[in-house]
Computed example of a mutant assay.
Amino acid sequence: MDLLQLLVLALIQGVTEFLPISSSAHLILVPVVTGWPDQGLAFDLAVHLGTLVAVLGYFREDVARMLLAWTGSLAGRSLDPDARLAWGVILATIPAVAAGTWLGISGESVMRQPWIVALASIVFGVLLGWVDWRARSGRAVVDLGLRGFLGIGLAQALALIPGASRSGMTIMAGRALGLSRQDAARVSFFLAMPITVAAIAYEAVQLIAEPVAAPWAMLSLAALLAAVAAWITIHLFLALLQRMGMMPFVIYRIVLGVVLLAVFGFEG
């Protein structure tokens, strides 16, 4: 991997990881446009670490409160809003982890066909726009209850379909349940933390099982770039979300899906 490939892919991963536009669609299209080889599992691990550091750092105060409240609930204290949010995030993570474990890397590879990514980007993008347009805000995150968090978790599990977008699916579910755009986005960011940890653990196990020589200095740079890009993206997304809504992302997803279909067609 040369420096240009590292810079481009790290920035793309950092920007698209938390936006409702499907990082997998971009990571399929970029090698076709550039002719670059696959970046490898070590690179994926590095950029996932970077985006995890970014989201944990950005929401560090929320995470600290949730951890304290959650550990307190284990000790028998009453469930305050932070504890309920922490338990909700745990519950919502279970469907995606279970589905990912069942699907495995081979199953995910089978679905990672360009036409599947393209159609998922378009169909779920349109659905995201419709739900956001029809949704009525007014429900607080603490009022979701376990059933609400489970619903968001099931939506997150559906995001294992490449092109669906984990962020897009969780925000859509949150909006359907009556959350404001910003609250739905914040829940999506909180859910990204344990899912990214699970992805990192899975990738680490694969690397331990099949060790590869890795340029650690370049991978560290990739992690740093992904972290910076993700931090800026989170900040701008939350700042502009209420004003612009989901429609710019819906339009972008449709265009991206059409481009993928134009390049690849429906070939498997």
Rank of each mutant, 00 (worst) to 15 (best):
I116P: 00
D80Y: 11
L56S: 07
R139W: 02
G145I: 07
S137D: 09
A118M: 11
A54V: 10
G145D: 10
V63W: 15
L68R: 15
V131M: 00
R84W: 07
F124M: 12
A98S: 13
R134S: 07
R134V: 07
T71H: 11
D80F: 06
T93E: 10
R77V: 00
W102C: 05
R77N: 05
R136Y: 01
S78A: 15
G50W: 05
G125I: 06
L146T: 13
E108D: 01
L146V: 14
L146H: 14
L68C: 02
L74G: 10
T101V: 15
L91K: 02
V141Y: 06
A86E: 07
A86K: 10
R139Q: 02
L52P: 10
D62P: 00
I122L: 07
G125Y: 13
A83E: 05
A54D: 08
G104Q: 10
R136M: 01
V141N: 04
S78R: 13
P81H: 09
D80E: 08
A54T: 11
I94W: 12
G129T: 05
L52N: 12
V117S: 00
V55F: 01
L127W: 14
L52E: 09
G107T: 13
E108H: 10
M111E: 02
V53C: 08
L91P: 04
V55D: 06
L52Q: 12
L68P: 00
T51P: 03
W115I: 06
F124Q: 06
R134I: 03
V110G: 01
I116C: 01
A140Y: 03
T51K: 08
V131N: 03
V123E: 11
L128M: 15
E108K: 13
A96F: 13
S121E: 10
R147V: 14
Q113V: 03
D82C: 00
G129Q: 08
V131C: 00
G125E: 11
L91T: 12
A140I: 03
L127K: 05
L79F: 03
G138M: 02
T51F: 07
I105S: 14
R60H: 14
A92Y: 11
L146M: 15
A98R: 08
L74A: 13
V126H: 03
A92I: 08
V142T: 13
